[in-house]
Amino acid sequence: MEGPENLSIVLFAGGFDRVHYALVMASAAAATNRKVTLFFTGRALNTLLAGDSDGAPGWHRLDPADDGRRPAERDAAFTANGLAGFEELLEACVMLKVTVMACEMGLRALGLPAGVPLRPDVPVKTGGVVTFLNDAPKTGAILFV
């Protein structure tokens, strides 16, 4: 295997395109037998929030895509072009045992109450930066998205 054996990705920006591509990288790395951790903080945490009362997933609240479209519109364009959609990528990460972490400080910074409902279909560990750093192997790579 070329490249790092482990990949730790910090998602601190809430732009749809950034989060979508981080899921692409995470699922591809896990599919090639790398240990992968996704550490969500800042506005990227919307990805992990449970759906709204109207049933829309939390990632619909991510910031607009680079082309200005709302997340759901951009995602529909991706799938129409034969690309993996947001839900498909997130499901692949879960299936491939990617570690998903939610930053406790990031949740507080967004003003979210303790115990805010997160997606029940995604096993999420909560922790801080120290927890993330302790999880990241010394031989791995850390990317900021």
Rank of each mutant, 00 (worst) to 15 (best):
M1G: 15
M1D: 14
E2R: 11
E2A: 10
G3T: 08
P4K: 08
E5K: 15
N6D: 14
N6Q: 12
N6V: 06
L7Q: 00
S8D: 11
S8T: 11
I9D: 02
I9P: 02
L11W: 00
F12I: 10
G15M: 04
D17W: 05
R18F: 05
V19W: 01
H20K: 11
Y21M: 13
A22V: 07
L23T: 04
L23G: 00
V24D: 01
V24S: 07
V24K: 03
M25P: 03
M25Y: 11
S27A: 14
A28Q: 11
A29W: 02
A30F: 02
A30L: 06
T32S: 15
N33D: 15
R34Q: 13
T37A: 07
F39T: 01
F39C: 04
F39R: 04
F40K: 01
T41F: 01
A44N: 02
L45K: 02
T47E: 05
L48M: 07
L49Y: 03
A50L: 10
D52P: 09
S53A: 15
S53N: 14
H60N: 12
L62S: 01
D63N: 15
D63S: 13
D63Y: 11
P64V: 11
P64L: 10
P64D: 12
P64R: 05
A65K: 05
A65P: 05
D66L: 14
P71L: 12
P71N: 14
P71T: 14
A72V: 14
A77F: 04
N81S: 15
A84W: 03
E87I: 03
E87G: 01
E88S: 12
E88A: 14
E91V: 08
A92V: 09
M95Q: 15
T99E: 08
M101F: 10
M101Q: 03
A102E: 03
A102W: 01
A102G: 09
E104D: 10
E104T: 05
E104A: 02
M105Y: 07
G106M: 05
A109C: 08
L110I: 04
L110H: 01
L112A: 05
P117E: 08
P117H: 08
L118I: 03
L118S: 04
R119P: 03
R119Q: 06
D121N: 13
V122P: 02
V122N: 07
P123T: 07
T126K: 06
G127A: 12
G127E: 09
G128W: 02
G128R: 00
T131Y: 11
F132N: 00
L133P: 00
L133G: 07
N134R: 15
D135E: 15
A136T: 11
G140R: 01
G140N: 04
G140D: 03
A141H: 04
L143M: 13
F144Y: 15
V145I: 15
